[in-house]
């Protein structure tokens, strides 16, 4: 095969774009899980975000408003999950799965008349064919990509240094204790879930407005599930989400590059490599945890419903 055909600057820039939807959805889910809630509906919220963002951008002509629309759409769907799990105390796993089923159907219904339309283009800081490697990788993107990188940093700072972060973590580690201290566990979780929905919506909108850009039914094709995996992959550490998303996106783009450059590795092994490598990393991480080299950080209350009994 011809390694010289793969241009590293192009490659890195593509990886950054491919990783952004995953990164956005994953950081939202991380916050949700930090408060002890497992929302398996990321795929559904992403696709609703993709369609709402697309429609808003097409109707208003503004891709930036499109992202607002995407975030609102994702957040709106997550409210359903929040109401069901927090007030109706439903099990989180099936509620999340139902959310995905509903989101896939509803998005296809809403988006019917938007198939085949070209959305307004999100401007890039610098564009053109003659950028050098630095410009292409660091400056050759749209604003949302940078925001996507900023959110995990902000989440990290909030969780680590602020009082809000402390409360969020307290709710996820021991909801009874948090309740006893006077925190409104349900509403804190409600807020976190809606934040997660908005982030997933942004991720979906990035898919339909920048990465592809177009609207097609079911266009997330499993990105929401990958985002869920990334949270564990990153052991609930916000900054590692960026790394995880880039590794995952990197492998997915690499396999296409290898094929195009004439690699003789069978396609199916290349296609399954992102998943297999994710498993290897998970195994590696858990081995590190087991032998005390690093700490596992799964929130203790993950997946458990809370009901104040008094």
């Amino acid at each position: 095969m011809d390694w010289s055909a793969i241009n590293p600057a192009f490659y890195v820039a593509s990886v950054m774009v491919a990783a952004t939807p995953l990164l956005l959805a994953a950081i939202g889910e991380l916050v949700v899980e930090k408060t002890g809630v497992l929302n398996l509906g990321v795929e559904g919220m992403m696709i609703i975000g993709a369609v709402c963002g697309f429609i808003t951008a097409v109707e208003t002509g503004s891709p930036s408003l499109g992202f607002v629309g995407g975030a609102l759409g994702g957040a709106a769907l997550s409210v359903v999950f929040a109401v069901l799990t927090q007030f109706f105390l439903t099990s989180q796993v099936p509620t999340g799965l139902a959310l995905t089923l509903f989101g896939l159907g509803a998005s296809a219904m809403v988006g019917q008349s938007y198939v085949g339309i070209v959305p307004p283009k999100m401007p890039q800081l610098m564009s053109g064919a003659d950028l050098n490697a630095f410009e292409r990788i660091v400056l050759g993107h749209d604003a949302m990509l940078y925001i996507g990188l900023a959110i995990p940093v902000a989440v990290w700072a909030v969780l680590r240094f602020s009082r809000l972060g402390l409360i969020l973590r307290a709710v996820g580690e021991d909801h009874n204790a948090a309740h006893a201290l006077g925190y409104k566990v349900m509403w804190i979780r409600f807020g976190a879930i809606v934040f997660g929905g908005a982030c997933a919506g942004l991720g979906g909108a990035y898919l339909s407005l920048v990465r592809v850009p177009q609207w097609t039914e079911g266009m997330t094709t499993g990105a929401g599930w990958i985002a869920l995996a990334l949270v564990v992959f990153a052991s609930w550490r916000p900054l590692l989400i960026i790394l995880g998303a880039y590794i995952f996106g990197g492998i997915a783009i690499l396999q296409l590059n290898l094929q195009a450059a004439g690699s003789t590795i069978p396609v199916e092994y290349l296609s399954m490599s992102p998943y297999v490598i994710t498993i290897f990393v998970l195994v590696l991480l858990s081995a590190l945890h087991k032998y005390g080299i690093s700490r596992a950080q799964a929130p203790a209350m993950l997946g458990r419903s809370f009901h104040a009994s008094n």
Partner: peptide
């Protein structure tokens, strides 16, 4: 009916069925 409406409908059915659990346990 479009196929997508059926899947949204199934999602709704699940939401209601799950929400109904509340009355069983509380």
């Amino acid at each position: 009916l479009p196929a997508s409406a059926i899947s949204a409908f199934q999602g709704m059915l699940l939401f209601f069925l799950l929400a109904g659990e509340l009355l069983v346990n509380y």
